[in-house]
Amino acid sequence: MPESAALLGPSLALSAVLFTLGVAGVVLRRNAIILFVCIELMLNAVNLTFVALAQLHGASGQIMVFFVMTVAAAEAAVGLAIILAIFRHKQTVDLQNINLLQG
């Protein structure tokens, strides 16, 4: 497995770039749906790290990816339901207009 082990460093760097893009998107955008998309992007970056390190540590890393995917699917379902409920209440998904918790 020498050639794929050589991809460890570049894989970790790629996941760093993707995670950073996700963080930048969360800070930059105001649309709640795009916020969720950026969170999915960050989860994917972490998954890439798990898979890259699974080459060295065995299949445990790949199993963590399954758990991350499950949590991501659950999070997307509940989060999008919350967005739907908020949209029904406020007629917008712009986070600047959603300030229920500001009192």
């Binding site: 970790l12 770039v17 950073t20």
Partner: peptide, 23 residues
Amino acid sequence: VAAAVVIAGLLLVELAALWNYSP
């Protein structure tokens, strides 16, 4: 936008050390 660039830049610099990782 400035905050995003600063946060993302710091994070990227921090994570860029991973590039050097080898087995």
